[in-house]
Each structure stands twice: as structure tokens, then as C-alpha cells.
């Protein structure tokens, strides 16, 4: 499953995202650096409230108010031409960048379709916005092709969203995300509302499409077991920070961070959107009053002396040899620089 991936597609560097300004601000994402390579499926996992969606919104500049990116950069490497920082794009450039380069399937995929327009209209307006000179016939043909791609009958083009099942709506959204053959597709828990069988089926299709079309995927979920199966690399988020990042197999075999270990040991419920994490005692941290040092220390079974006072930095552990991986934990000290 793992492959040699060298050319970066999107480099998130030291990203901070706050909700609100000043002292009242909720620091939802802190110092996140993550690189997605071409053709790679990167998984992002973490408990509810750990900042996964906020990171996705921040990267695509879709943060709802009062969210603001307060620091960092998001460097995009287009197939041809020089890399640029998405956060610096003008309004006009941003509009051209969106969907054509990076598309996103939202957590609320159930409500992602406009209830008053037909599926065909919503597939075609995205194409029209980016290819204003395309003919209506060609857009319609493309819309049909997209539905076929995600396994929905062509005649559903004429349907309104309320006439589709939840699973069909999510497939439509996935098809829509591929409309302009973007380089990167961000999927924020696109399958949480579905049962496990359906989730696997959709994900399987997605990975297959990825092989054919060659896009990269940032896949966000609570469910680490899904990620282990479908992604190349996995990043684990806790309290707004990435605490571990490694190839899927490596995380599965040998999780270094006690939180990753807990996530792997916790059993997701068979059905339903919200999952109890049974493997980790205690509850996620309050972003307004983060614990000092390692923010996981109040819940960590292995916490020891430096944990409550000093913040462990994310980096390659000194004791590690082999595939590149990083972790932020005092059990695996990192020599800075």
C-alpha cells in the first residue's frame, strides 16, 4: 500500500486557527504542519473537537465567522508553475483555485445540496463557474459521467436532493468534488451518517477512483480503523495539535503516542455519527483552558515528570530508524533541529 511519495502537493506549515479575537479566542488549531504528496491518501484522526474540521476549513479558507487563520501558510504546488500560498490569494484568484485545485466534501454532506435545485444544476454550475465557455451539452455529459463514476443512475440528475437517500446524496457530493478533476479532495467525515457496510463501499470506490484519476485525498474521521485500511499515512490530532504522524501500517503496528494507542484500542460503535472512545479514560480537553505541558497528560496512563510542565515538540524520535514518522511525546524525545 505504501509508495514512494516525493513530490509535495499541499504543504500546511505552522497553521494556527482561532475562533474569535484576543483573550477570548478559542485556539482550535495550533502549530499544525502537514504535507500531502501527489496521489497520496492522508488520514486525519482524532476525537470530536480536536480541530479536524477547523483545519480543513482553514486550509480552504472557508472558516465560518468568527474563525480566523492567525498564523502559518498553506503552500500549494500546482501541476505546472510555481508554488503559491493559498492564504495570500486574492478573492478572484481564490475563486479560480477553489474546486478546480482543491475540492471538499463536508462533514454535513447530508445538507450539502441546495434543496431547491436539481442535482444536475448543482453539478453543472460548478463546471460553468470554472469553464464559462463550455457548452451546456458538454456540461450535462460531464454531470452524467460523474454520477456514473460514483455509481448513481443517470436519471437521478433530474432529482431534487430530498428525493435521494442519504447515501446517494453523499455519493453525489463525492461526484461533485471530482467534477473539475482537482488535485486534492478533502473529505471531512463524508460517511459518518452511513452504516459501516456503506462506508466501506464508498471508501473503496474512492480509493479506486484515486488510482484511476490520480488525485490526493485528505481523509478526516474519528474512525482510525477505516484509515488504517484506506490511507497511506495517518496524522493524529489532539487538542488542536498533531501529536503523531506516520505511515498507516506503522501506526497500526506500533503506535508511539499513548493517545494513538488509545484511539486504536477504542471500539467505534457500529452505527451512528458520534462515537464513544472506550480506550481512553477522561474527556477531550477544554480549548479555553488547555493543560500545560503535554495537553494529553491528565488522561495519559504513561505520564511522567516532564509531561505536565513542558510541551513536547513534534519531530522524528531520536530512537527511530526507518520510514519517516513523527511524534510529540516525552517518551520519544526529539532533538530539536
Amino acid at each position: 500500500m505504501t509508495r514512494v511519495l516525493t513530490r509535495p502537493l499541499l504543504e500546511i506549515k505552522n497553521l494556527d486557527v482561532d475562533y474569535g479575537l484576543g483573550d477570548e479566542a478559542v485556539k482550535a488549531v495550533r502549530d499544525v504542519s502537514l504535507t500531502i504528496h501527489r496521489g497520496e491518501v492522508v488520514g486525519l484522526a482524532g476525537e470530536s473537537g480536536s480541530g479536524k474540521s477547523t483545519l480543513a476549513y482553514g486550509v480552504t479558507r472557508l472558516l465560518p465567522p468568527p474563525g480566523v487563520v492567525s498564523n502559518g501558510s498553506v503552500v500549494y504546488h500546482p501541476p505546472t508553475g510555481d508554488p503559491y500560498d493559498v492564504l495570500n490569494l486574492s478573492h478572484h484568484e481564490l475563486r479560480k483555485y477553489r474546486w478546480a485545485e482543491t475540492s471538499i466534501v463536508f462533514q454535513g454532506a447530508m445538507n450539502s445540496l441546495n434543496p431547491v435545485h436539481k442535482v444536475s444544476v448543482q453539478l453543472m454550475d460548478a463546471i460553468k463557474a470554472h469553464e464559462p465557455t463550455s457548452s451546456k451539452a458538454s456540461r450535462l455529459a460531464r454531470a452524467k459521467e460523474l454520477l456514473r463514476l460514483v455509481g448513481i443512475a443517470e436519471d437521478r440528475l433530474e432529482a431534487y436532493p430530498h428525493q435521494l437517500s442519504g447515501g446517494m446524496r453523499q455519493r453525489v457530493m463525492i461526484g461533485m468534488a471530482l467534477a473539475l478533476e482537482p488535485q486534492l479532495v478533502i473529505m471531512d467525515e463524508p460517511t459518518t451518517a452511513l452504516d459501516v457496510v456503506m462506508q466501506r463501499q464508498i471508501l473503496g470506490q474512492l480509493v479506486e477512483l484515486r488510482e484511476r484519476l490520480g488525485f490526493s485525498v485528505l481523509f478526516i474521521t474519528h474512525d482510525l480503523s477505516l484509515l488504517v485500511e484506506f490511507s497511506d499515512r495517518i496524522a493524529i490530532m489532539y487538542g488542536g495539535r498533531i501529536v503523531e504522524e506516520a505511515p498507516s501500517a506503522a501506526i497500526y503496528r506500533d503506535p508511539k503516542h499513548p493517545y494513538s494507542e488509545g484511539l486504536l484500542r477504542s471500539f467505534p460503535a457500529l452505527r451512528g455519527a458520534r462515537r464513544e472512545l472506550t480506550g481512553i479514560p477522561g474527556s477531550p480537553p477544554d480549548l479555553r483552558g488547555m493543560p500545560t505541558g503535554c495537553s494529553f497528560h491528565p488522561r495519559c496512563p504513561k505520564a511522567f515528570e516532564p509531561c505536565s510542565t513542558d510541551l513536547p515538540i513534534l519531530g522524528k524520535p531520536d530512537d527511530h530508524v526507518g520510514e519517516p514518522r513523527t511524534v510529540a511525546c516525552w517518551l520519544h524525545p526529539v532533538t530539536a533541529g
Binding site: L62, R98, N114
Partner: peptide
């Protein structure tokens, strides 16, 4: 959500 999607689509 569909408004966010519309923005994300670059409409």
C-alpha cells in the same frame, strides 16, 4: 452547509 459548498465550488 449548501452555502459553504457553493462558496467552496468557487461560484
Amino acid at each position: 452547509d449548501y452555502i459553504t459548498v457553493a462558496h467552496a465550488k468557487g461560484l
